[in-house]
């Protein structure tokens, strides 16, 4: 059992947020969701227009977490071997043999920048590694080091020459975090920090071992049966055919959330509870992580796209309609 207490967990988490905050202006919710996802052992897909600091955020997080960090810039000509690694012929003591040379995926924190620019073949190679935490090359399986996180970014605007991630692969991401435009005050602060003579950087807040302990502690957090029941009801209510489905769900949702969504809610809720100083999951923890955990798992129909309905609208309505039950 972990020796970590909830206070230490909270302290570590806040320390990470503080270090990231030295570089990243604002975006507290984004930072929080990314951190929750990392502490829950999940991968994050960040979506936002260019220039919002997505890459900077993840790079800073890598600095703060004291983890082996690698960045992969996804391009259409990127091949799976470029990220996984490849067998190379080596000559050692007169013996020539193939040896595996690990790709950039062999790190603790991988930044998959503009993931939707790579071909599906390369995307699949990455997503398989995300799911299995291992890589298979030439019939040889290589386990990735713990902890292993993939933080991917994608640009929703430029669709030409991109390969949108299939829904099944989107489901592999623990959270999908939308990165919004900073407000005016934050914008000024960004300009001040990035255009001066001094550049700020994040210090090491926690080690990889700490993160492993934090993940273990998070998984041990208990969750009451009626909270689990609420999560199950919530997941089922995202399906149009469910009795508890909200009007927006019935009208605009094509496919509801998979059970992975429920897992994300539970784990995200546990981490959120610990970060709030609690040893149990509350309904408010579920509500806090629900948009990030569900938005990429909810498939809207054509009507929704035509009428400008966003998944967040559907989720917000669902959360307001489906109230926690005492019974």
């Amino acid at each position: 059992m972990t020796e970590l207490s909830v206070d230490q967990f909270r302290e570590y988490a806040l320390r990470v947020e503080s270090e990231v905050g030295k570089v990243i202006v604002g975006q507290t919710e984004v930072v929080r969701h990314v951190l929750v996802s990392i502490l829950a052992g999940g991968h994050v897909l960040l979506e936002g227009v260019p220039g919002l600091g997505k890459t900077m955020l993840i790079r800073t997080l890598g600095e703060a977490l004291d983890l082996k960090f690698s960045r992969i810039q996804f391009t259409p000509d990127l091949m799976p071997a470029d990220i996984l690694g490849t067998e190379i012929l080596t000559d050692q003591d007169g013996r020539r043999e193939f040896r595996f040379r690990p790709g950039p995926l062999f790190a603790n924190l991988v930044l998959a920048d503009e993931i939707n620019r790579a071909t599906p073949k390369t995307q699949s190679a990455l997503l398989e590694a995300m799911q299995e935490a291992s890589v298979t090359v030439a019939q040889q399986t290589y386990h990735l080091a713990e902890p292993f996180f993939v933080l991917a970014t994608q640009n929703p605007l430029e669709m030409e020459g991109t390969y949108p991630l299939p829904e099944a692969q989107l489901d592999r991401f623990f959270f999908k975090v939308n990165v919004d435009l900073p407000n005016a005050q934050e914008m000024v602060e960004i300009m001040d920090r990035t255009t001066g003579t001094e550049t700020s950087s994040a210090g090491k807040a926690v080690s990889g071992a700490d993160i492993v302990q934090m993940r273990a502690l998070a998984r041990a957090v208990p969750i009451a049966s009626h909270v689990k029941q609420y999560i199950a009801d919530l997941i089922l209510a995202t399906h149009p055919e469910d009795a508890n489905a909200s009007p927006l769900v019935r009208k605009y949702v094509r496919y509801g959330v998979s059970p992975r969504g429920g897992q994300a809610l539970v784990l995200g809720g546990k981490v959120t509870a610990l970060m709030a100083g609690r040893y149990n999951v509350a309904f408010e923890d579920i509500h806090a992580v629900a948009p990030a955990a569900l938005r990429h798992r909810l498939l809207l129909n054509f009507d929704a796209l035509a009428e400008g309905i966003r998944t967040d609208d559907v989720i917000d309505e669902l959360l307001s309609v489906l109230q926690p039950q005492v019974n």
Partner: peptide
């Protein structure tokens, strides 16, 4: 109480899957 009491009550009743320290 943010589900503290009900969680505690359930932990007291059925705690086989949760470490004693956490309980």
């Amino acid at each position: 109480l943010k589900e503290r009491l009900s969680t505690a009550f359930e932990l007291v009743q059925h705690s086989e899957h949760v470490p004693a320290e956490i309980i």
